[in-house]
Design a binder for these strands. Structure first.
Lengths: 311, 311
DNA sequence: TCTTTCAGCGATTATTTGCCCATAAACTTA
DNA sequence: TAAGTTTATGGGCAAATAATCGCTGAAAGA
């Protein structure tokens, strides 16, 4: 199995780096061209090959500047929209990985706080193997899924493994049963330690989620359909680390926000809080988060950027 | 011009990151497919797209390419260094066996010349059972140990048995008592025949040995401790088939090299002469062998490769 | 104003690649 | 051990991509 990945890496290297054809690779490795092709595509599907585009596309840059000005952002990266893209995080994941990696390359120890969600997971999956024992990675949200599995959208664990940093997960569900329970749980020494660390983070990366019956929050069972319907009726527009906010980015009062186990969202303007998100159904959520200064950095796509600018 | 690069970046992004076909890119950008293709290839040639391979083997391949270029090698294989495994031939043995097997798989008869040493033995031990009656395997060095046993570092015998090929050992000690004796022995019909065969080899595999009081050459009694100390003082750095060379890969004059019974090392650039060796204590020997072109192929590990490249 | 040069374009052709399928090999399970 | 099941392999073929060629038009220079 490992040797197969080795072969895949070798084939992928010859194909993408050395620019050989599959026939040449086949000859070099004494296998059939078909096998070579399989190895190359395995290298791709196993994410061994990582492609990076080193050119700021003018339009995206302009949009980024405009967004930065309008919402006083510290950081803004716009990736081209792909109208045909089926999957959510095409492009964002790569761009997010670049920025995360930039922080991790720091020789000085930093504390990086991390939210959760599919987009963030996709970005983390694009990270290269690194060795960053000087850094600490701390989770902002509970890492226990509604089914009790400890590895829900295993962002912090995969990341820590990939970059070999110390990590501080928050071993709680995303939502606890009541505000009182949250207070009690947050007093536990380990949790308290994680929260203190998160509040001292040098940089924060979060995913932006949308709300609605089709949103992951609902589909993955964190929030019941009835509750979600009520939230939407009350004006909930988006979600960051489980905190629900309305279309102006203000936290929805009472309701579910009283039960979020997550660390409160930092509003300290000095620390970069960078949100990742894209796609039609997240447009309003992204705009809301930017409007209120819930985040001060964003990585999104062209159409979401235009939407946020228009209003 | 800038806008052309922008377009190239956009096209390259859609192609490599989003995974669109050139047709789709052409449609999205309202240009012909050919133009899209040109933009993509422009993005590549302008080095806007950067491919990385996130796998240990990738580094090995880069090192191999670098070594190939620097030392004009016909063949170079670098295996990942395993810092945990200080034992001899982890990885090298397998890699060597693969290459040896590749040659043996040839349906056309070949002559393979073989040196000796622990590393080569480990590689040969990794060979599968084969039936290669078409090939001839000839030994480059004497196969008689200092204790008179006929099967010292039984490389050629185990190999011939494993792959069922005709074999031509050299029934001499590694070192004879004098240059005169060597000349006489080399005139014996059987020996002469083996030497002629070895000189006509299609491919040569040798082990690289180090020198010093702890080196196998000394420990196994081929060279006395006094003689070894003198050799080291005279600048001997490594050994191939019993031939001692200095740190630039030049044979040490006189001394013990006058008594080596081995076939002279082939310097014919057309025939692959592939050396196997790894480990901290062989770094200098490997570098020396590469520097002088004593060998034109090498199978070694990452750290040895880096060492050879640095100087 | 005219000429020269040359980048870019599309059509055509050649090469390369992705995928399906039949077959062989390996591995399970009774 | 034999039958069944999964997994890998290589051939063939269609799609995708790269290379070649002649044409056009715009910019530079006389």
């Amino acid at each position: 199995m490992a040797s197969r990945l080795d072969d895949a890496a070798r084939a992928g290297w010859m194909y993408y780096v050395a620019g050989r054809t599959q026939d040449e690779i086949a000859a070099a490795m004494s296998i059939s061209r078909q096998s070579a092709q399989r190895l190359v595509s395995l290298a791709v599907s196993e994410r061994l090959v990582k492609v990076r585009l080193d050119h700021p596309i003018a339009q995206c840059l302009e949009l980024a500047e405009a967004l930065k000005t309008k919402f006083s952002l510290k950081f803004c990266e716009i990736v081209p929209s792909d109208p045909m893209a089926y999957s959510a995080a095409v492009g964002i994941a790569e761009a997010g990985a670049v920025e995360i990696e930039r922080w991790l390359r720091s020789p000085d120890p930093i504390v990086m706080a991390i939210g959760t969600g599919r987009t963030l997971k996709a970005a983390v999956d694009q990270l290269p193997n690194m060795s960053c024992p000087q850094h600490k990675i701390v989770s902002l949200t509970g890492n226990i899924g509604p089914d009790g599995s400890a590895a829900y959208y295993n962002v912090i664990f995969s990341m820590a493994e990939q970059v070999q940093a110390r990590h501080f997960p928050m071993l709680l569900p995303v939502y606890v049963s009541s505000q009182e329970e949250r207070e009690i749980l947050h007093q536990q020494p380990m949790i308290r330690n994680s929260i203190a660390l998160a509040k001292a983070a040098d940089v924060v990366f979060v995913g932006i989620g949308d709300v609605g019956l089709d949103a992951p929050l609902c589909r993955d069972g964190f929030v019941s359909r009835e509750e979600m319907a009520k939230l939407v009726a009350d004006g909930a527009t988006g979600e960051i680390c489980g905190w629900l906010f309305d279309e102006y980015g203000h936290l929805v009062q009472g309701s579910i926000n009283a039960r979020v186990a997550s660390v409160p969202i930092l509003r300290d303007k000095k620390v970069p809080v960078i949100a990742l998100g894209m796609g039609q159904h997240k447009h309003k959520a992204i705009r809301a988060a930017l409007r209120s200064g819930l985040v001060n950095g964003v990585i999104t796509d062209e159409t979401a950027a235009r939407f946020a600018l228009e209003s």
